[in-house]
Write a protein that binds this DNA or RNA. Sequence first.
DNA 1: GCTATATATACTCAATAAGAGCATATATAG
DNA 2: CTATATATGCTCTTATTGAGTATATATAGC
Lengths: 283, 283
Amino acid sequence: MAVLVSISNNTPHILTLEHGCSFPSGPLMVEHRSLQKGMRNWVEHQTGLKLGHTEQLYTFADPLHGHGHQRVQISYMAFIRQNCDHSLAERSIYDYFPWEDRRDTTSCPLLHTIATRLKQWAADNTQRWQRCTTVFGLENHIWNDELSLQRYELLWEAGLVPESSWQNGAHLPGLSMHRDYRRILATALSRMRAKIRYTPAVFDLLPRQFTLLQLQQAMEALAGCAMHKQNFRRLVQQQKLVSRTAEYDSSPQGRPAQLYQFAPETAEHCYLAGAKLPLPAIS
Amino acid sequence: MAVLVSISNNTPHILTLEHGCSFPSGPLMVEHRSLQKGMRNWVEHQTGLKLGHTEQLYTFADPLHGHGHQRVQISYMAFIRQNCDHSLAERSIYDYFPWEDRRDTTSCPLLHTIATRLKQWAADNTQRWQRCTTVFGLENHIWNDELSLQRYELLWEAGLVPESSWQNGAHLPGLSMHRDYRRILATALSRMRAKIRYTPAVFDLLPRQFTLLQLQQAMEALAGCAMHKQNFRRLVQQQKLVSRTAEYDSSPQGRPAQLYQFAPETAEHCYLAGAKLPLPAIS
DNA sequence: GCTATATATACTCAATAAGAGCATATATAG
DNA sequence: CTATATATGCTCTTATTGAGTATATATAGC
């Protein structure tokens, strides 16, 4: 099972089947040297895509409906370069987790709803409310973009998503998926946010040549929060992550942006985090 | 397959079988609700141990010797509280990776050896040498404790460990394991170093009550580098991670240290990194 | 009681790194 | 010439962190 991630319209998307309800998947092939090679192989056959940065997410027992059997599912996450052709349906990751996109924070009504309903759920259980505040960055806590899985699990426990068996009252907006696939997606989101921060994995999502603004917007799209332009560029250029090319972007308007390319000298490690815009604490 | 980690003698240890060459392992049980539950179950049956922080490491295809078949191996890492009784043989993690223990950096001859041999291997391949310097913190790079897997893989590629098929000349000191289990162990080391930094997982390795020095020494043991005492305490107490108990350590000599316990209010997230002692760059 | 020892604390200080703002340069379309 | 959108340069404040100095506290042994 593969969570295939790409960026379009400045938003992270996944490639889905069954109207956005499941991921492409394939068989465990014995003849391949490794499981990852096998996965690359069937993804390529199904979609014709070349995969960039790839990592294993999680292996779990998938109860086959109807039978008393279980099947082992191994989930992967892989990055796909922008503007690649394929036949699968793209969905925005934030269609599944609207609360994870905080790029536009000018009054975020959804988070208010969540806070209110979580407070109802926590009631007078202070430890439970403590968890809510740290995970959702409420009160005087700060929002941590890598806690997307914990947030989803908290909403699940609180019965605010349709997947919860004891779901009571209106659930939150956001597309659902089959089985516990939305949980896998939350895991993938958390992983990709961690990965782009400390490794040059973003460059596998961008075209070979890109403007610094495109790079920043890709980071913002994945992290789900806006960044300070000057500080971001300071960070990128200090680390010599990119080198300028001779070409310029043929943008419709304004000064043409210089095109850059990834300079893979520092391939193992980098730091692309900081430079955030102020995220007002929501109480 | 489970990498069971505990701390004794201020050093991280793993529980092993076959003279330190393999990990305890058990069957995939269909009747359990999740794979992790199943793993906990057979570990408990084999060893009688209660597991603390547990996470899945990696799933891989294990070629069964002799047959043309493969088997799927799911590896886990789990923490075990100090002073627990069990029947398995303990081995220091640093018996397998001597270069990963940098707590005593007063002239480290092994890293000099590694640097020399890697330089021979890199020869005039500058990109290769670049990788060596970033991963091993050579020249003006800093040592990153979480890159233990990359370091092992680099040594493997360079033919400096006995597992490399093209291993040429004398290999580095350090115990080996069956199959590619030492690679799994390197993954586990990297993961545990990352985990203790951002979560309160260390507390699953310590006794319920511990002194701040014990806590620091546990962190140092896992991270493989020494820390600055005052700064470490500042960090721990700023975050209110621990609360003092009424009791004191009955130490043989010196002022008795106060015993603390984990204060799980901040259960989801914390930061226990900094406060390192200077690590001289080795060139 | 004095000393050696090992711990526990209290501060200070300098060097970065990070967040945030202001200003200006540059190119294009209309 | 102007509106627009981008690309840069520079400053300033604040928080964090690495590192050092000094001192307080309790115990065991003499």
